[in-house]
Design a protein around this nucleic acid. Structure first.
Length: 367
DNA sequence: AACATGCTCAACCGCAGGCCA
DNA sequence: ATGGCCTGCGGTTGAGCATGT
């Protein structure tokens, strides 16, 4: 393969084009048309290589170029064509008059790709992610034990035996909790009080409204209201749905949005929504399955209490933390900070190894 | 205000393949 | 058949800007 003859010449300009250069190139092309690109720089009086001139004309100077944002229709076309053609940007661009392959490629890489991933869709295949259990587990571990080096693969495997229990005190005081696993299975209190296997390590948990103990949110309808079920399936965190929150103002909703974005760096599980009854729900990701109780009749949360109950080798230990928090943000930070401290005390290796011997973490609400 | 970080997008790079002497 | 020239394509880079801390 030969190289561009113009590319090996010395003293050719590179980088951004000046308005003067643009004008020279534009005038030349509009006057003489597109001929041999290698001769264009010389004829147009430019210190550029022909390849650079061609690119500048195609991607920027061409008069038929459409500028501005991509429309929804264009976006749909790109998505459907990409599903069929893959990264063949030139072919995709051919179906979108006024758009260049470079423009579409940039749009894809900066916007569409992320959009799909947020919806739990693999941008390469346009199908929902099919994460293998070991991948999910690895993500879970990485998120949960961010300050601890990842364990060896063999110790990760034992995590699948981790069980989570919900104490009877929670059930008796608040009514039966529910849980949704990543495969949409619904666990009622009967299942929960015995044992809720973590399955893919991902689930949602709901509880009764604190102010209206017998008024339940419907976890399945909540689940269905989420744009993509895989939204949760790809999350590597435990999710908690809590409906015992006071009504939120619009500014509170904004604050919540910021908080959940903060608490979930992989953007796969944060969601603010309203329940289908009068109360509001918050999905609060916390990596270790802690629980927060929301109290207070005003728009702001008054108190945050949570308790971890660790049981190992038949010996129980508890840790209770109750804080009065003035804002959602503070509460979430408190929870996250507390959790990270907790689990630094339990090295992952021994934690996972002990799990095979039926170690369990009880998580329950502190009243 | 200063710095860090993230995002966008224009431009570059390297390669593949067509054309032609 | 071969090798050089040229175009087209897709991946990558980095400057500039926006946003967050």
């Amino acid at each position: 393969m030969g190289r561009h003859s113009c590319c090996v010449k010395q003293k050719l300009r590179k980088g951004l084009w000046s308005p003067e250069e643009d004008e020279k190139l534009f005038n030349h092309i509009t006057r003489f048309g597109v001929g041999c690109w290698s001769s264009v720089p010389k004829l147009a009086g430019l210190q550029r290589c022909g390849k650079s001139c061609r690119l500048r004309w195609i991607n920027y100077l061409r008069p038929d170029l459409k500028r501005g944002m991509f429309s929804q229709q264009e976006e749909d076309i790109i998505l459907s064509l990409h599903e069929v053609l893959g990264n063949r940007w030139a072919q995709i661009a051919a179906q979108l008059p006024g758009r260049t392959d470079n423009e579409i490629k940039n749009f894809w890489n900066s916007c569409l790709k992320k959009k799909l991933m947020k919806q739990g869709i693999d941008p390469a295949t346009h199908k929902p992610f099919t994460q293998q259990p070991h991948q999910i587990k690895q993500e879970l571990i990485n998120n949960t034990f961010s300050e601890t080096p990842p364990p060896e693969p063999e110790s990760i495997l034992s995590l699948q035996n981790m069980h989570l229990h919900f104490s009877n005190s929670l059930a008796s005081s608040q009514g039966p909790p529910f849980l949704i696993s990543s495969d949409s299975s619904y666990y009622d209190s009967a299942v929960l009080t015995t044992e809720a296997t973590s399955r893919d390590q991902i689930f949602l948990m709901g509880m009764s409204n604190h102010n209206k103990p017998h008024e339940w949110v419907d976890p399945l309808s909540y689940y269905d209201s989420v744009p993509s079920q895989h939204h949760f399936g790809t999350s590597s965190s435990y999710g908690m749905v809590c409906s015992s929150m006071p009504s939120l103002t619009s500014s509170d909703q904004n604050n919540l949005s910021a908080i959940t974005d903060f608490s979930d760096n992989n953007n796969s599980g944060s969601k603010i929504t309203s329940s289908n009854n009068s109360s509001n729900m918050m999905e609060n990701h916390n990596n270790n399955g802690g629980m927060v109780s929301w109290e207070g009749s005003e728009n702001k949360m008054a108190e945050c209490s949570f308790q971890f109950h660790h049981q190992e080798n038949g010996v129980k230990s508890e840790e209770v933390m109750t804080n009065t928090c003035s804002s959602w943000q503070e509460t979430v930070h408190q929870l996250q900070n507390h959790i990270s401290i907790d689990f630094n005390n339990y090295p992952l290796r021994s934690f996972s190894q002990d799990l095979t011997a039926a170690t369990s973490y009880d998580v329950f609400r502190h009243i």
